[in-house]
Amino acid sequence: MTPFLSPEDLDRLVRSQRRLLTVALVAIALVVAAGAVAVWADVRFPAAAVGAVAFLCLGFAVIAPRQRLLGELGITREEAAALLRAERERRSGVALPARDRARRESVKAALCLAVGLVLAVSFVACAYYIFTTAGQVHPEGEPLDPWLVTSFFVGFVSLFAPVFLLGAKRYRDEARDWRRADRD
């Protein structure tokens, strides 16, 4: 059974969850960027271990305010997850009219299509750069080509292009179904 929270407390919980996710995404981006810079700068293991410990401490610092809020509200993580899930369903617009749901799905389809196309184009550009420079001889002791390393990471992320393109198709199909439901 999920406990009842006042609207103000529920809003505090939702804002805390948003902050937590935002900081987590920023921290992940920083870890990826720091890893890319470490590879590019040819950083040795002890410096990388110090960075890993620093990011671990950052993780604890991010989670501490949320744990404090859960303690103030007198709920557990599982109860907070259930409350957030119910609030997300309430705010998602499940009760919206079919025309509004169709419009929402169309916007999602357009966004997924745009992201998928950008990723597909970046994949082609990165693959071209990697395949044209990967076979060249690299003199020992010289730093790696930073664009080659960057192309590798961007190309790897660009492999998610089909996921976004398929998501665009799914959202477009859902929008079509909602438009049909609106006409009926």
Rank of each mutant, 00 (worst) to 15 (best):
R170G: 03
F55H: 10
E140L: 12
S122R: 14
L25N: 09
A24E: 10
L30P: 00
L69V: 02
V124L: 14
A80P: 01
G71V: 00
S158I: 01
F123R: 11
A86I: 04
L159H: 00
A134R: 11
P46Q: 05
S106T: 13
A29H: 00
L144G: 14
A36E: 13
A41V: 07
G116D: 04
E8H: 11
L119Y: 01
A33G: 09
S122Y: 03
A102W: 07
A27R: 05
V26Y: 01
F160T: 04
V94C: 01
A24R: 10
A95N: 13
E174W: 04
F45Y: 08
L30F: 12
D9G: 01
A48T: 06
P97L: 05
A161W: 06
E105P: 00
L119C: 03
A49W: 10
L159R: 00
A86F: 03
E87Q: 13
R91A: 15
A49R: 12
S6N: 06
L30S: 12
A52T: 14
L21K: 07
G93D: 11
S16L: 06
V39D: 13
R68G: 03
V137G: 02
S158A: 15
G93H: 09
R68Q: 12
S92C: 07
T22Y: 08
A161F: 08
I75N: 05
V124F: 07
F153C: 02
A52R: 10
V31E: 13
F152M: 09
L148Q: 12
A161I: 00
V149R: 02
A168C: 08
L166W: 11
A54T: 10
T132W: 06
C57M: 14
V118I: 10
R88D: 06
L113M: 11
A54L: 14
A161N: 02
A95V: 05
R85E: 13
K108F: 10
L83K: 04
R12P: 00
A33H: 03
A125P: 00
L84W: 07
P139D: 11
A82F: 01
A48E: 13
T2Y: 01
V23A: 14
T150N: 07
R91D: 05
E174M: 11
A82K: 03
G35H: 08
M1G: 06
R183G: 15
R172C: 03
Q136K: 10
A120K: 01
P65K: 02
V26M: 06
V149M: 07
E79T: 07
P162V: 01
A161V: 02
